[in-house]
Design a protein around this nucleic acid. Structure first.
Lengths: 362, 362
DNA sequence: CTGAAAGCGCTTACAG
DNA sequence: CTGAAAGCGCTTACAG
């Protein structure tokens, strides 16, 4: 009969010929509708039937075609994480936390890396829209326009910004308490007796930079300490950026006795720059970071830094996404708490003594 | 008329009602078939018509539904990068390189993170299959079964392994020349006069560990140097793993004067362990890494290490994938070259003098 | 270039 | 639970 001939003809590429719901129904001896019911959770289908269908699925190596399903019911379980720079270890922590939270909800997180390029961001997001992702987590690239971001959200794609805010876009944002973090680290240095404190590293065009700078300035102002323009030295957020920034700052003004760094990675660069001039961090000069990467605890001297719990960021962001998906509104900001981790990279100056009360120890 | 009423009713959620090919055809004043032609490159359609269609697409905010298209033509431009651990900085470099190569070919790379969990690998790969990805790059989790991996490839999903090999699976693999890399670094230490060299860090169950260990052993054997079991100390590949491994090795045998580390990250942990005992890397004891992360050049002492060009891995892997997609065969291994980068973390011992000829300098 | 029709692999809704 | 039918948004193939 005809069916047999067809089978024999296709014998050689049988593995790549994908089974379909009809095939499953046929081998399980049930209807197409029943298979569909089982595939979607099997409510109201009796256990024996579910077993038969699952057995057929295994036997045939059937792969559910979620895109065909999505075509009909307009649903998707795929969420995109649009990452500004996969080489940033702190972002990696956030992504890992976020992935865990999403996977627990039965969603499929995929990450794309835009490498701080607005153009790449634009084109990758466009591609993901074509693939019917259910929503976007995004750490927007520098120069991202509010209109573009807003447009994404308005077009029905639930969108949550991570770590960075784009002014003018009405999109929910999950950020650490950048102001308070930098305020805490600056205040800590002031309490140790430092009066000449530099703020090093970071890219001015990104929202977190401005927030951290404000925290620094407010602590300095509160203590009535002067801040010269030259005490603030932006740079790339790579290790090398920190190294260059510190070199420039100290070349200009050797009276600097302490520095708050934009991130831990910048602080690592600071360590290198200091060692290159024969200065020992934690002894000759004080350094504070921001992020609390795993390495910071392990290096020597262990880096005093601001801890931002990546798990918190991930968890809050996934909750916010869930809200967006439910009622497509809500653009509040979530600010995640921070904590000063005192380690060994700071020293007291003048008649002060390093105090280790009132501050959490590692 | 009916259409007008429908339009007015849907006015409030007009933004989320997606335009379709029919809508584009209507506003452009052409047929559905023509729009389809334009969407797929516009061959044989005159420029004026293409313009009209594109104008309509922009005006309507039309988003191509690649899944509906894929349903019909069984094509996909989405490639999955299944990463064993996103927190691994070297892997991040490889992913970035791979993404660049794929994007250049008009493909859409998405990465998922399995966190070294075989179960997560299994479930995420299953989900991605449901989303009709065109192929998989994978750094297989420990305990990945050859059958599973082989099954993936046999089911018609082009699959390329990165960095790690699963014995028994007939799948193309792109790896650095692990043996030669470790041979080179061990030989370098031997030439500096070291005789008691430890091999620290790394997880035994993964293929690259065995290869690197073989390189170490062959250099030692060639020099007729004895290797005790206790000179080889595996550990997690995290920084903390390196720290613990080095501590154990030196506690057992303080005569060790040099160590080859499984990776740069392990070497960073070694630095910490050495400093904790008052030893200065590059002066009291020699350390060599493997990977050549960006940090290695910048830390002090700058780490002597084996450079594995991540761009090469990414480029070769994407070429290999292209071949798989074209004729679904080819399971050769690609071995990417390595290079010893001599920096400051090693010292000569006995009557030897650090030689810096014949070896590439940074 | 157009137009009408069939089909990709599912879901949906409904009568039985 | 089943079965027949229509539809999701595209592509394909073909006659005009």
């Amino acid at each position: 009969m005809v069916f047999v001939m067809a089978d024999r003809k296709s014998a050689s590429y049988v593995a790549s010929k994908k089974a379909t719901v009809i095939d499953v129904a046929r081998t399980a001896g049930v209807s197409k509708s029943t298979v569909s019911l089982v595939l979607r959770g099997g409510v109201g289908v009796k256990a024996r039937t579910i077993e038969k269908v699952n057995a057929a699925i295994d036997a045939l190596g059937y792969v559910y075609n979620r895109e065909a399903a999505g075509l009909r019911n307009r649903e998707s379980n795929m969420l995109a994480i649009v990452a500004n720079d996969l080489a940033n270890p702190y972002l990696a922590q956030v992504i890992i936390a976020l992935e865990t939270a999403l996977t627990d909800q039965g969603l499929v997180p995929v990450v794309v890396n835009i490498n701080e390029s607005e153009a790449r961001q634009r084109s990758l997001v466009a591609s993901l829209k074509e693939h019917n992702v259910a929503g976007f987590f995004i750490t927007p690239a520098p120069k991202t326009s509010a209109d573009w971001l807003q447009g994404l959200a308005s077009a029905g794609y639930p969108t949550v910004c991570l770590m960075r805010e784009i002014a003018g876009a009405n999109v929910p944002v999950v950020v650490p308490d950048n102001r308070r973090g930098m305020y805490l680290s600056t205040k800590y240095l002031i309490d140790l007796g430092h009066t000449r404190i530099a703020f090093v590293g970071g890219v001015e065009s990104i929202s977190d930079y401005q927030e951290r700078k404000e925290g620094f300035l407010s602590a300095m102002q509160e203590a009535e300490l002067a801040v010269k323009d030259s005490d603030i030295e932006p740079s790339s957020t790579k290790r090398e950026g920190g190294q260059l920034a510190v070199t420039r700052v100290l070349d200009r003004d050797p009276s600097i006795s302490a520095m708050v760094c934009f991130t831990d990675v910048v602080a690592y660069g600071a360590y290198t720059a200091l060692r290159d001039r024969g200065l020992v961090p934690g002894k000759d000069i004080s350094v504070v970071g921001f992020d609390d990467l795993e390495d910071s605890r392990l290096m020597s001297p262990a880096l005093t830094t601001i801890r931002v719990n990546a798990e918190d960021i991930g968890r809050v962001a996934s909750e916010r996404m869930q809200q967006c998906r439910e009622h497509s509104l809500s653009s509040d900001n979530d600010v995640v708490g921070v904590k000063l981790m005192v380690r060994s990279s700071c020293c007291a100056i003048g008649d002060k003594v390093a105090h280790s009360t009132s501050v959490p120890k590692d």
